[in-house]
């Protein structure tokens, strides 16, 4: 395998991992506040179609990403009203959001099938982005760097800021946080909206960058992989990044190895891998005698009612 291909593989895997990382980060923050939003796939699709339509109509791709994030927030607020304000079951509401998002995106995008838009260029000038070696580091668009910066930011936010501490406390013990006087529902709304914004961006990364077009269900289930990776990461942003990149690597290496004429794994095995890894991670978490270090936010998925 020559050098050029090796670089090409790494660049492909980074691009494959980026939307999963973005969606996963958003969900991680939401889950840290105690909200399990299974609507990631739906929010991604809403973001993907809104972003594509916006970019297509204005011809300005960055605007597409902005609209995608907004659309993701709108979709997540819908979830928020049902699950946080009205206290509906989070699992059921999240699933409903995915089904709704899938249908809505298909309806909204129907007139845009078979059209394309211009991708964002690489962030760095062509001397760096097109350099045979340096493109490994400089050859991506702004979203890729944004996703890594957000991983930093999320880690710092959760561990080193007061608001991060409050968010975690809301996720660990909503009743205590409420007793101290923190607005549990408001904080959760914020976390869910952040999750929606990133899911929207992640979806738009498919329709605006990975395959710049609109096609129904363009995310093809990546939202579920992002959800699985949040568990796999045991709610730590850096592990999430690692998980997303490992996932991207497995997918990409498999394709490249088969194209080169040898198969590491049968394709069916490959499709199972992220889920198997999650099950394995869950099993490891369950086996740990000391709860806490790897554990889920204790209030994850529990509806909160003040005074209840």
């Amino acid at each position: 395998m020559n050098f050029d291909i090796a670089i090409s593989i790494v660049m492909t895997l980074v691009v494959a991992a980026t939307p999963i990382l973005l969606a996963g980060l958003g969900e991680l923050i939401a889950e840290k506040s105690g909200v399990l939003n299974l609507g990631v796939e739906g929010m991604m699709l809403v973001g993907a179609v809104a972003g594509f339509i916006a970019a297509s109509l204005t011809g300005f791709t960055p605007f597409g990403y902005a609209v995608a994030a907004l659309a993701g927030i709108c979709a997540s607020l819908l979830f928020g009203v049902l699950a946080l304000t009205l206290g509906s079951n989070q699992v059921a509401t999240g699933l409903a959001l995915t089904i709704f998002g899938t249908g809505l995106s298909s309806l909204a995008g129907a007139g845009f099938v078979g059209t394309t838009i211009t991708r964002l260029p690489a962030l760095f000038p062509p001397t760096l982005a097109g350099h045979p070696l340096l493109r490994l580091v400089f050859g991506y668009d702004v979203i890729v760097y944004l996703s890594i910066a957000l991983t930093f930011a999320a880690t710092w936010f959760l561990n080193h800021t007061r608001l991060g501490l409050i968010l975690r406390s809301v996720g660990e013990s909503d009743a205590s946080a409420h007793a101290i006087g923190y607005p549990v529902t408001t904080i959760r709304y914020g976390a869910v909206a952040f999750g929606g914004a990133l899911a929207g961006l992640a979806g738009a990364y498919y329709s605006l960058a990975v395959t710049p077009m609109w096609a129904d269900r363009i995310t093809a289930g990546r939202g579920w992989i992002a959800l699985a990776l949040v568990v796999f990461s045991s709610w730590r942003p850096w592990r999430l990044l690692l998980g997303a990149y490992i996932f991207g690597a497995v997918m990409t290496l498999e394709l490249y190895s088969k194209a080169a004429g040898f198969a590491l794994l049968p394709p069916e095995m490959l499709a199972m891998l992220p889920y198997l890894a999650t099950v394995a991670a869950l099993a490891v978490i369950a086996m740990r005698p000391s709860r806490g270090r790897l554990d889920a936010p204790r209030c994850l998925g529990k509806p909160f009612r003040a005074g209840a």
């Binding site: 050029d4 291909i5 090409s8 593989i9 492909t12 494959a16 498919y206 990975v210 395959t211 077009m213 096609a215 269900r217 363009i218 995310t219 093809a220 289930g221 990546r222 997918m251 990409t252 394709l255 490249y256 088969k258 194209a259 080169a260 004429g261 394709p267 069916e268 490959l270 499709a271």
Partner: peptide
């Protein structure tokens, strides 16, 4: 002819990556 099996009829991102892999292998 280099053939890449994807085990799916429809997954745009995977189809795109498969095409990239084939292109990098000289197709």
């Amino acid at each position: 002819t280099k053939v890449l099996w994807l085990s799916t009829w429809y997954d745009p991102a995977k189809e795109a990556d498969a095409a990239k892999a084939l292109a990098d292998q000289g197709a």
